[in-house]
């Protein structure tokens, strides 16, 4: 069953067309990737999905309900969480406080509850603190809780961002270039973590990534974007051998083409 469906989505700013008539589907329980050369519009797709950009046309549905035209916080509440291409942690706050942000949309105590110290406030706060530690444990940095997020090593900061996204209890997790800046062993851990998120938590993953080795290894389904259009889609094997994809990545050289002929 399709968890996420993008149909006929176009996005533009002024006279610039960023995405053109995009159709794409993410199956529930899958790890799906979106790839393409720099500037192909991948992050724009994420920004449309999460409500940061408003597409010119087309529709986006999450589990059957339309999410285009919704504000970002509403989209998150409906079960879509993201990480950012460049880390967007609350750098001066602790790792635990960062992860607690993910619980905001699943809790409801107000300012008055806090001032009066009501039971609701205390019960929620205890649960929020517990959840924060749980997700830090899950992503493998249990000792980071009280550390200021900006002072953590880069790889750990990435994990805090994952923990924060997971804390929102998403159905679909959008990862924007999660492997950027990681070394080989960290990438291995990342793949393992992605599989645990899907297998243990049942969360569907949509990934944007430049590391082709990682994409081919982990994805079940891949979409390829170039100049804002989908040029190919399918299993890793199929996409890898698609001439349009090879051309988008390597470019077409007239001389090479004639020599080969």
């Amino acid at each position: 069953m399709a968890l996420l469906e993008i149909a006929g989505m176009s996005l533009g700013f002024g006279g610039i067309e960023v995405l053109r008539d995009l159709d794409f589907t993410v199956e529930e329980g899958s790890i799906t990737s979106l790839i393409g050369p720099n500037g192909a519009g991948k992050t724009s797709v994420f920004n449309c999905l999460t409500g940061f950009y408003r597409p010119r046309s087309g529709r986006i549905t999450l589990a059957g309900g339309r999410i285009d035209r919704l504000a970002p916080h509403r989209v998150t509440r409906l079960g879509l969480a993201r990480t950012f291409q460049n880390l967007r942690l609350f750098r001066e706050l602790t790792a635990a406080e960062n992860v607690m942000a993910g619980r905001h949309c699943r809790t409801g105590a107000g300012a008055l509850d806090a001032v009066l110290g009501t039971r609701r406030h205390r019960r929620e706060e205890a649960a929020i603190a517990q959840a924060a530690q749980h997700w830090l444990d899950f992503v493998g940095i249990p000792d980071a809780a009280e550390r200021v997020a900006g002072s953590l090593p880069y790889g750990h900061q990435r994990r805090v961002e994952w923990a924060r996204a997971l804390a929102t209890e998403p159905r679909l997790l959008l990862l924007d270039e999660p492997a950027a800046g990681l070394n080989t062993s960290e990438k291995e851990e990342l793949i393992a973590l992605m599989r645990r998120i899907r297998d243990e938590l049942g969360i569907t993953i949509l990934l944007i990534e430049h590391d082709m080795g990682l994409v081919m290894q982990v994805s079940e389904h891949i979409g390829v974007l170039d100049h804002g259009r989908k040029i190919a889609e399918g299993t890793p094997d199929r996409v890898q051998n698609d001439p349009l994809v090879i051309e988008a990545y390597l470019g077409r050289d007239e001389d090479d083409a004639s020599e080969a002929a």
Partner: peptide, 11 residues
Amino acid sequence: SDEDAARAMGI
């Protein structure tokens, strides 16, 4: 700290 990140967290 980061308005966009906060919005993405459902705030």
